[in-house]
């Protein structure tokens, strides 16, 4: 086996770097969209309105139980049938592969985020939300001021796990020809026969990306437990005292 990593200073290196940029872009776009979908869907499922419940269930179960690659292929090949024409034309001008990858990954991971958000909200006692409503806070206000701040601390670790999964799944976008890192590795392997070197490099890059995501998550966790916790701890202490009074 003869490997020669010095070739990475030439063309293959620039190809991998351009792939890295696309991977990061794809991950960020899909993450932003998926978080929005996840929060909305998760909250809707948590509230459990009869009218939207079946719709949410079908969406979450369907997206969670089908492979992301097939979803990518679906959004790529049948976009012109499914999406409204103006949206499709708009996305096509950017190169539709990227758009399809963002949509597919966002819908796929959005379903997982929704479950995470629902589990986080379930960890908050239902009485908290009901009390906020009874005290006259609006619906969105009681979500924003009462339910979410308490849920978010439980929610961060699984959220980080899901986000690393999202970063890893961006590699699947090569199936529809998005020029991200794995795609560039295939190109280098096919045209320059330097597969092993390129594969080593992109493996390391993926590990670094995942570790960065995990590190950001830990940072956020630390921040939340410092700032949210301090304030809530006094609130909880107050509540216990008040509760004690009532029982007595």
């Amino acid at each position: 086996m003869n490997t020669d990593f010095s070739i990475l200073w030439g063309d293959p290196g620039t190809l991998i770097l351009s792939g890295l940029v696309v991977t990061v872009k794809l991950a960020l776009c899909a993450f932003a969209l998926a978080i929005i979908i996840g929060v909305v869907m998760g909250t809707l499922r948590w509230i459990g309105w009869r009218a939207v419940e079946p719709f949410c269930w079908v969406y979450i179960e369907f997206c969670r139980n089908t492979p992301p690659v097939v979803q990518l292929l679906f959004w790529y090949f049948s976009a012109s049938f499914v999406l409204p024409m103006p949206v499709f034309m708009f996305l096509r001008d950017f190169g539709y592969e990227f758009g399809a990858a963002v949509i597919a990954l966002a819908f796929y991971h959005g379903a997982f985020y929704a479950e995470v958000v629902r589990a986080g909200l379930n960890a908050v006692p239902k009485g908290q939300f009901e009390a906020a409503r009874a005290l006259g806070l609006g619906f969105l206000q009681s979500l924003r001021r009462v339910a979410f701040p308490q849920a978010i601390r439980v929610l961060v670790p699984p959220l980080v796990n899901e986000t690393t999964a999202l970063i890893k799944n961006t590699s699947l976008a090569m199936a529809i020809g998005v020029a991200e890192m794995t795609f560039q590795y295939r190109a280098i392997d096919n045209f320059m026969f330097r597969g092993i070197e390129a594969l080593t490099v992109i493996t390391v890059l993926y590990v670094i990306l995942c570790l960065i995501a995990a590190w950001l998550g830990r940072l956020m966790n630390g921040y939340l437990s410092k700032h949210l916790h301090a304030r809530n701890a006094t609130a909880i202490a107050d509540r216990q005292i008040v509760g004690g009074e009532i029982i007595r």
């Binding site: 690393t164 890893k168 799944n169 961006t170 590699s171 699947l172 090569m174 794995t182 590795y185 594969l199 992109i202 493996t203 993926y206 590990v207 995942c210 570790l211």
Partner: peptide
């Protein structure tokens, strides 16, 4: 855990 499955398949 920190490597995409696709990369492992290629390896």
């Amino acid at each position: 855990r920190n490597v995409p499955l696709l990369i492992l398949v290629f390896w």
